[in-house]
């Protein structure tokens, strides 16, 4: 009971934390989805030495632990002369990290589009950019929705690590309230509840896409 009261009284802290989490995740997705698609195009279409270099870079980036990457960005930005709020270091590291994963996801999704689709598109005179825009990407949006949804949930979870570099997101808020009021269960339970809610929203979106997919592909 005491715990619930504490959480309710500190609700502005929680809301601020949740808002930061959401803004980080949405900001990240807004950047990393388009860049990830471009990266996937490079991974698919670029001439060989460049493509292999890119593939190695993406592979390597996916082996970096996110927390360490966040630290490097956090301590690295001032070295470049940029004295920014930790939130920006958080956004940058989250974006770089998520882009590498999305590039790989989109690359696999491009390959999953039936080759005869693309061949027919070529036969009908569609240009490369038209083929991506009208044939490949629309299908990828539908068929890769579950995998992308999974990645979004992963990004939400990764965002919590940013508390360690003092970004005031949701887990930071829970930890703060718990440390200041000595009732650990309620604040963390509240945070977990909010993360669960975010997860549900993403999964609902994926289920929606699954319905679209059933309608078009059977």
């Amino acid at each position: 009971m005491n715990g619930l009261l504490v959480v309710w009284e500190s609700r502005d802290v929680f809301l601020w934390g949740a808002a930061n989490t959401l803004s980080l995740v949405l900001g990240c997705l807004l950047l990393s989805i388009p860049i990830g698609i471009l990266g996937a195009v490079v991974l698919t279409e670029a001439p060989d030495p460049l493509r292999r270099l890119f593939a190695e870079a993406v592979d390597l980036l996916r082996c970096v632990p996110f927390l360490l990457l966040a630290y490097v960005v956090y301590y690295g930005l001032p070295e470049l002369g940029l004295r920014l709020d930790p939130w920006w270091a958080g956004l940058m590291s989250l974006t770089v990290y998520t882009t590498a994963y999305l590039a790989e996801i989109f690359r696999a999704a491009f390959r999953a589009v039936a080759p005869d689709n693309i061949e027919a598109a070529h036969a009908f005179g569609l240009s490369r950019s038209l083929i991506y825009r009208r044939i490949i990407l629309p299908q990828v949006a539908i068929t890769a929705a579950p995998v992308i949804g999974n990645q979004v949930i992963t990004t939400i979870r990764d965002s919590a690590l940013l508390m360690i570099i003092t970004v005031q997101e949701l887990t930071f808020a829970a930890n703060f309230v718990s440390a200041n009021h000595f009732t650990p269960f309620a604040p963390f339970a509240a945070a977990v509840g909010l993360y669960l809610l975010m997860s549900f929203v993403v999964e609902a979106g994926v289920r929606r896409m699954e319905r679209v997919r059933k309608g078009r592909y059977g």
Partner: peptide
Amino acid sequence: LVRATPFVTLVL
């Protein structure tokens, strides 16, 4: 629950 929760939150 565990899959939706960030790992650092779980640790805490």
